[in-house]
Design a protein around this nucleic acid. Structure first.
Lengths: 224, 224
DNA sequence: TCGAGAATGTGATACAGGTCACAGTTTTTT
DNA sequence: AAAAAACTGTGACCTGTATCACATTCTCGA
């Protein structure tokens, strides 16, 4: 497996020495996934860390009833499953593909070996993990303080600024998944969306979104 | 500063070599704090990592209005501020003492040096950080799915099982702080509490709590 | 190509809990 | 010891959004 090509993209990987890169590469397999495929399931043994070469995934909790809760979204050049690797070796959440993805499965023992032997790499991974966690902490804040329009505006901004880097994009989530991401229900999300369209804040056509007044979106997101 | 005595309490610290322990110890100062004192404030430079020798603290976001949001609670033998150390060197949240505490301030550059040079220590710190983050992820889940009685029951169980290790304890939070922890308001928390008392689930006298039917609490917490 | 199941929009209704107002109590300050 | 400030309980009211029910419209496999 050729990990070289990921070198320039992920800061942490550039910290690896050639032999470590090989150690990881040898215990790493790249796999293509299609949308809706489950990558790993909460409760199963966490044998691998996932590196996302391309695509979009969600981490989510499985609930007793049918509803799920999306913890966060993961995309190009991110690692997924760190919390599971370091918490008893059992997956703490599920991961499912949202948009076709290319994933590298890194054997967790190989990964841990490298962390132990290379503190610089460990530090970079720590930084990445802390950053990911902070993102969820802010989502906690949003859930508590903001009401639906604020949370929806925030989500649109995340798609626009963090994921697609464009004011115009196709929503990768169904209305139902959007509800799971926003901690709401399908119906309420629908209503909020038509509301936003009527108010000329976004142009909305099925899953196609175009942001009309980004400033207003920011205001709504901040005021909740 | 004598870090030896913390050695047997915190797994990560036992990974340190004598010289590293000294490096940390030299750049570490222990300070007593009284309840309500602020340890660090969101937005300020993150120069130190906090080790909690004893006491109870909260990490919290500061909101534009007066209300706060308690992200999580920290107590004996936990580290606080890891996310800030590894995310741009600025504190990502505030930390305030709830019950008188003894804190060790570990110089962040010394800490980072040790992490880089000692992968075993890095791995342990990663484990601790991931575990703390997972706790917040579960709180996110609770905020979204459960309603107030469920969240309150959960909080009582956290106090009982994770913090005080007893069915009988004195609430360390005011009604208002409890509301900030539960993502609610003072009034609603009060009402929920009297409800629980009337239903003979807990005995309640000011801040003194005694759990009467733990099983019921668990059920309420799980069903939301 | 057709049918079945999933995804979406929309109305009517219910209710958990936020907000406001006020009173009593406890704690802190001077 | 008096005054101020913070904390707590309780009632009345209002609102955001969950829930239920149904009609349409897509999607994709047989």
């Amino acid at each position: 497996m050729n990990c070289q090509e990921c070198l320039h993209k992920v800061c942490a990987i550039s910290r690896l020495r050639p032999d470590e890169l090989e150690r990881i590469g040898k215990n790493c397999s790249r796999v293509r996934y299609k949308a809706k495929e489950k990558v790993f399931k909460q409760g199963t043994p966490a044998s691998h860390l996932i590196y996302i070469k391309s695509g979009l995934l969600k981490s989510h909790f499985i609930e007793s009833n049918d509803k799920e809760i999306i913890i966060d979204l993961f995309y190009d050049n991110m690692f997924l499953g760190m919390h599971s690797i370091y918490t008893g070796g059992v997956h703490q959440y599920s991961a499912t593909v949202i948009q076709d993805a290319e994933l590298c499965f890194i054997e967790s023992s190989a990964f841990r070996d490298v962390v132990i032997n290379n503190g610089g790499f460990a530090a970079e991974m720590m930084a990445a993990t802390c950053s990911d966690s902070m993102h969820v902490f802010h989502r906690l804040r949003s859930m508590i303080r903001k009401q639906l329009p604020g949370r929806f505006a925030e989500a649109i901004l995340i798609f626009s600024d963090e994921i697609f880097m464009s004011d115009q994009f196709t929503l990768p989530l169904s209305r139902n998944e959007l509800a799971e991401f926003l901690g709401s229900t399908r119906e309420s999300v629908t209503r909020t969306m038509t509301e936003f369209r009527n108010d000329k804040i976004i142009e909305l056509n099925g899953k196609d979104v175009r942001i009309l007044t980004k400033e207003l979106l920011k205001t709504i997101s901040e005021l909740g």
